[in-house]
Design a protein around this nucleic acid. Structure first.
Lengths: 246, 246
DNA sequence: TTTCTTTGTTCGATAATATCGAATTATATT
DNA sequence: AATATAATTCGATATTATCGAACAAAGAAA
């Protein structure tokens, strides 16, 4: 047997993901289209999850993520020792560099920030907790992409597209792939104004005991330039903090 | 047909609930026992959810709630800017009264706490964020129940049951209904040891611009009695804070 | 070490049920 | 009121989830 996966459950999870990505409530029709399943099938799945408050139905009939997911989220973050493990490093990093420091998680497809510390510098642009980050235009995104095989990178890029956020955003897959090569070599990634004009950042991986990489540290700030001593030093501090956590 | 529920999905949701209630990772065997399904069935369901990071497997093989639920939780709470609006009032209230102050959300069926501030008093018993609260035995629960039509109240009580937490817990629907009447009149609810012996609390509604009520402020503490000046004053502060937020 | 015990994972036949399109109802738009 | 769009229900059918049992892996005991 190739497939141990239970299809109806698999589809249900897919529906949750669709609602998560949409970041808003959707109509049954929209969900059915995005999932590629017939309306009636989707209806049955949603109805079942509705009973468990995993899905909620707005007064206007749209479907959204339910309150139970909030409960679960609170429970997960509590039980999450990684966050506790990383948080002190974030504080130290934010304090040492003056930049914002944050931690992200990669599930093979999405980069999600799950903890952050605001630096001492005046203006701060730092991703919110729970935010999904761009793959091709942020240091975090590029770092995680660099760990994937070429074919996977291309398929992910095709799915997500390569939105041009600023004039510096890399929008050509080949250029990105060659940058991923150098990231793989140097062990960390840098972002200079590719997501927001003037915003610079860097990301370094946190290795698990088994060598797998699921988490990364990041810094982000309005540095003078990527060549400035400030930035270089901040990157060094971040890389060593990440190594210590590995 | 009586049943539109998709069984495998229903079971999956049940597994998530079991893991949520357990507040820790469980072995396959434990989950199978609690759910009443054979190990192999549970295994298939968990395996499927594992693929979606809705479930995670610890290095020791135990199963727990996965990172995707954290993402979902963050997405759900994001859609609530209400938290930012309320938080300052909670701090002020906690500081003024010395009791714990918290905010809850009602979705028509469940009362969930979503923010809290610990008061200055020594011993504090205050619901955790993400916690589901009893409907018939807490001030919050009674407050929200008082806004429902009689028939709805009865059906909710039938579904949830009226667990007797302490000797003071109201376990008779008619007694509860008459208390709901007075809550509706006075505009806030009081709890005196119905959930935990000696624990007193109160809840006041936050009205939206359209007059709908989805959120409530609450205080909880170990007051001498509901007639004590401390408590009376705390309730007044809470009621006016809630009115200001409305 | 070997044996015994416990738990996790795989397998396959079978009965059960999820699926899908079409019909129906509800809601919105003209 | 008529039309269009979306939500929900229904039922026959083939698909597939289910379960017990077999197997594997990991631990404990000896």
């Amino acid at each position: 047997m190739e497939n141990k996966i239970i299809l109806s459950v698999d589809k249900s999870m897919r529906l949750i993901e669709i609602l998560l990505e949409a970041r808003r409530s959707l109509t049954l029709k929209e969900i059915a289209e995005k999932s590629g399943c017939p309306k009636s099938t989707v209806y049955g799945l949603l109805f079942t999850m509705l009973q468990h408050d995993v899905i909620r139905q707005d007064p206007d009939g749209r479907y959204g993520l339910g309150i139970r997911l909030y409960e679960c989220g609170a429970a997960v973050s509590e039980s999450w020792d990684i966050s506790a493990r990383i948080h002190p490093s974030l504080e130290k990093l934010a304090q040492q560099t003056g930049a914002g420091a944050f931690a992200t998680y990669f599930d093979g497809r999405n980069v999600i920030s799950f903890d952050r510390c605001i630096g001492s510098g005046g203006l701060q642009v730092i991703p919110e907790v729970g935010m999904r980050m761009s793959l091709h235009a942020t240091a975090q995104g590029k770092l995680f992409l660099s760990m994937l095989p070429r074919s996977k990178v291309l398929s992910v890029l095709r799915e997500d597209g390569m939105t041009q956020f600023t004039p510096h955003t890399i929008t050509d897959p080949e250029s990105l792939l060659s940058e991923l090569d150098s990231i793989r070599v140097q062990g960390y990634a840098i972002e200079h104004g590719e997501f927001r004009r003037g915003l610079m950042g860097a990301a370094a991986p946190i290795r698990e005991h088994d060598g797998k990489i699921k988490y990364a540290l990041g810094i982000v700030g309005l540095f003078r330039s990527v060549a400035s001593a400030d930035f270089q030093q901040a990157v060094e501090l971040m890389v060593s903090a990440a190594r210590d956590l590995s």
